[in-house]
């Protein structure tokens, strides 16, 4: 099998209208790996969760930019979603299912749980007032 290597980076405004754009762009990028319909849906859902977190929590719906870096090596995909917003004080608490700092916005607190359910690994690097970078990895074609 030919070894596939590819990379892309994108930067866009932290606007909710860009959530769809971001997940579709990443979906189109990874389409070259011939993922199954389910695998593609998994990746798009995880990207949507990460980008939504940047908008709602990172920038608290104020102006800011979001960066996505995506790389493919063989059948492995790595996606990083980054903001330079508020940062997360307690990462373990933020990752706990059902935990949310924004219940008034009817947030379910399932964002990180979804990323973890749909991707193989999820790493979070964050510092208060500096920003957050979420890196997710998934191997395509392993069922």
């Amino acid at each position: 099998m030919e070894s596939l290597k590819n990379e892309m980076k994108m930067e866009f405004l932290a606007a909710s209208s860009n959530e769809g754009f971001a997940r579709v762009a990443v979906g189109a990028f990874v389409a070259g790996l011939n993922p199954t319909v389910d695998e593609l849906a998994d990746i798009k859902t995880a990207v949507s969760e990460a980008v939504t977190n940047c908008i709602i929590h990172g920038y608290e719906q104020k102006e800011g930019h979001i960066w996505i870096q995506c790389s493919i090596e063989g059948n492995k995909v790595e996606i990083s979603v980054m903001d330079v917003g508020k940062g997360i004080a307690d990462i373990a608490q933020a990752r706990a299912p059902m935990f949310t700092t924004k219940p008034e916005l009817e947030r379910s607190g399932m964002g990180f749980a979804f990323m973890e359910a749909f991707m193989d690994t999820v790493d979070v690097v964050s510092e208060p007032r500096k920003g957050t970078c979420v890196t997710m990895r998934k191997t395509i074609g392993e069922g």
Binding site: E49, R107, S108, F114
Partner: peptide, 13 residues
């Protein structure tokens, strides 16, 4: 065609 965790809050609410 698509729903993420933001939909959960809307539905539960």
């Amino acid at each position: 065609s698509f729903m993420d965790s933001s939909g959960i809050g809307v539905i539960i609410g």
